[in-house]
């Protein structure tokens, strides 16, 4: 039954709040030692999935296994093997960093000395060794996040859940968390990451599941997902709005694919196969037709576009979602 290569196995997971379905049959498998990104608009069910896997919430239907243990039947065994970094710092704000980590160590039953040693080790590793007696509520956002991450690692977990780990952090804090995650994965930890920042998923995730309205709308590597909505495009912005239709016709003829238009942005574009040839041909044809071009570019689809297209969260907004 248990798949040793897959540290997280989720089948047909369902959860309803009142009469509002939050998860409507989610399937998910995560391979050992990888980072799996869970993306989706607010309310898609990302946090619900994480809370069920972390044994904080009971599912209404379906099966979920973490590190080979069922999250409902063997919750305690799962708890020995996971770390959780939630959206809000799960720390005792009144205590110091050291007191927090020692308390968690004791609750993991490391014993007084074991807990103290582990706390010292983690404080050192996350650059918090000199925080002394200062209460966590006086910490900066970045320090608090690092301590929260340290608290998730007291037991050196097999599986780490990161629920929007960098929300509210400045770019430096974000990079710190990313580096910490990379080094953990290098050490064999499996990570399930939810995020609102597509760049974060692009940077960290080996595979991504796109969640929409409680279902997995798409799954694959970031490149696969990008490829799914088409490859490169040529994009043209014309100077005069009244030339937009003519430009679209020229682009269609030049690249041999139907061009779409965005009147608000005075923009037209089409998917291309041969990047450079398409660019030079388009530019030449536009010049020959006497159309004034303000901007022309080749670009790859971003994960934002994948996200918007596949989740249907903004079919109309997708033209705006460029670089």
């Amino acid at each position: 039954m248990t798949d040793t290569d897959h540290v997280i196995v989720v089948e047909g997971l369902r959860k309803t709040y009142g009469d509002k379905p939050a998860l409507d049959g989610v399937d998910l498998t995560v391979a050992r030692g990888t980072v799996h990104g869970l993306l989706g608009p607010n309310g898609a069910g990302k946090t619900t999935v994480v809370r069920i896997l972390a044994t904080l919430l009971r599912q209404d239907g379906g099966r979920a296994e973490v590190a080979g243990f069922d999250v409902r039947r063997d919750a305690d065994a799962v708890r020995h093997r996971i770390g959780l970094l939630g959206q809000h710092a799960a720390l005792d704000e009144e205590l110091s960093g050291r007191q927090n980590l020692e308390m968690f160590g004791r609750l993991y039953h490391l014993g007084a000395r074991g807990a103290a040693a582990r706390a010292a080790e983690l404080l050192d590793r996350f650059g918090l060794a000199d925080t002394g007696r200062k209460a966590v509520r006086q910490y900066s956002g970045g320090m608090r996040r690092r301590l929260d991450l340290a608290a998730s690692l007291v037991l050196a977990p097999e599986v780490l859940f990161l629920d929007e780990p960098t929300t509210g952090l400045d770019p430096r804090g974000r990079t710190e968390v990313w580096n910490a995650v990379r080094s953990l994965v290098g050490g064999g930890t499996t990570v399930l990451l939810t995020t609102q920042y597509l760049e974060e998923a692009d940077q960290l995730a080996d595979r991504i599941s796109l969640l929409d309205a409680g279902r997995v709308a798409a799954e694959g590597t970031p490149d696969e997902l990008k490829a799914r909505i088409g490859g490169d495009r040529v994009d043209v912005v014309v100077r005069h709005a009244d030339q937009l239709d003519a430009a679209a016709a020229v682009v269609t003829a030049a690249v041999g694919a139907d061009a779409t238009t965005d009147p608000d942005g005075r923009r037209t574009g089409a998917p291309v196969a041969d990047r450079v040839a398409a660019l030079t041909e388009t530019l030449r044809a536009l010049g020959a037709a006497g159309i004034e071009v303000e901007d022309i570019a080749l670009r790859r689809p971003t994960l934002d576009e994948v996200f918007l297209r596949l989740t249907g969260a903004g079919a109309t907004a997708k033209e705006d979602a460029t670089v």
Binding site: I82, L91, H109
Partner: peptide, 17 residues
């Protein structure tokens, strides 16, 4: 409200504690 209960609950400690 501070989320620290979530950490306690995701740990293998005695829930009644």
């Amino acid at each position: 409200n501070r989320g620290v209960i979530d950490r306690f609950r995701a740990m293998p400690m005695a829930p009644s504690a």
